[in-house]
Design a protein around this nucleic acid. Structure first.
Lengths: 230, 230
DNA sequence: GAGTGGTCTAGACCACCTG
DNA sequence: AGGTGGTCTAGACCACTCG
């Protein structure tokens, strides 16, 4: 398996943005410079930059250049916004239920394929803390396909998605989400520090991946102090 | 001003998909066929198809072809999903407040630019009915830039966005949204047929356009029977 | 083996922006 | 005028899918 050149450039630039080598508002090298620098054609450079634009890492301005965009306050594929001004948020997570393999729930919120059903389900449960305040309960459901030993793995940087990428070469290529407003039940209210019946956000997500499989998640969010950006 | 060829092909295919000439699951002509057909190169065809993929109109499968994806139950940029099975939804809208020009609210939910502030704000208010049930209250806010006579315009197909596109060549190029769960106040509860304090979805959206301006919207959704897809 | 989309080359001209 | 991104050409080879 050979990684395409545009993907290498994409990863390289993305890394330099997420680690702060290029900061918000910085101009990245021009398409011609990147082409010369990496000994590839401009069309290949553009393929990498187009992906960065679609992921929201940069924006392009004709006649000017390509500029790094803000992606602050992001946790994996989730991004939040404080209700107060533009403070920067500290995002961490704590495991509520370790990964385990079991049957799929009979009335799962997405239709699953016969292959997924046969393979079984790896699920886990976490709570995401924003500025040390429990804000989101995240349930993750992965079909047990091409993921040997996943339940025994310790996560890289506490991140499921980073672990999937580095240990299993599984990358997220897209996400579809369905959003509801519901009342918190007792358990969730307790975890999120709310009263029972307080309104919370219920989000069902289906991530598509480069392995032609899906990853499913269910989020329950306390949006009193932070809102979900998507 | 000359429309690029890839954009023409994009519009042509999009039209054929939205009007049902190509139906869900149909394979559209291959990249080589489209190139020959329109007397353009494959790279140009790919540019059109990439846009259609990003907008969710089609998906591509290596070795197989490009296939039309479902975009049922869509109202402009909004898409809904019924909680019951996969019934098809009838989407209509009714005006609550006709477009009018005024100052921007001092504490608008997005930071606006000095140019936008000076130009003033065109706002309107609609309710979106799903299967004849009032489900979403939509506030729209447009900076009064390059929109002469907008307040006097009758909308094409009852659609603001279609009108903007056809009468003002204003196209939506992206959307960022912020989502909250809140309690309905009396007025909204009344419109949406809910009890006061029932949980509803509050969505703030900022659309980017091909005119380097933004369009803002605020949505209040009753998600008891339908969920918002985004 | 024939057809599909995925990647890539080495050029070209254009509109836009800035000094 | 010189640099930037936007569009476009006319080819090429590859991996994948299907009959």
């Amino acid at each position: 398996m050979h990684t395409p050149q545009y993907k290498q450039l994409y990863e390289s630039l993305r890394h330099q943005i997420t680690t702060g080598i290029y900061k918000e508002g910085d101009m990245i090298p021009s398409e011609n410079e990147l082409a010369t620098l990496h000994q590839i054609t401009r069309m290949t450079v553009r393929q990498a930059l187009d992906d960065l634009v679609n992921e929201g890492y940069i924006c392009k301005r004709k006649g000017k250049g390509s500029f790094v965009q803000s992606r602050k306050n992001a946790f994996g594929t989730l991004q939040f916004r404080s209700k107060e001004a533009t403070e920067t948020l500290a995002l961490t997570n704590r495991t509520l239920k370790k990964p385990s393999i079991h049957e799929w729930e009979p009335s799962f919120f997405y239709d699953i394929t016969e292959e997924e059903r046969r393979a079984g389900c790896i699920s886990l449960k976490r709570v995401i803390l924003i500025n040390d305040k429990a804000s989101v309960v995240e349930h993750l459901y992965l079909p047990n396909i091409h993921l040997p030993g996943f339940t025994m793995t310790t996560f890289i940087n506490d991140s499921v998605f980073e672990t999937l990428q580095q240990a299993y070469h599984l990358e997220i290529t897209g996400c579809e989400q369905v959003v509801n407003a519901i009342r918190a039940d007792g358990e969730v209210a307790f975890i999120l520090g709310l009263e029972e019946d307080d309104p919370i956000l219920e989000v069902f997500r289906r991530y598509s991946t480069n392995h032609d499989t899906f990853i499913y998640s269910k989020l329950l969010c306390n949006t009193k102090h932070f809102a979900l950006i998507s």
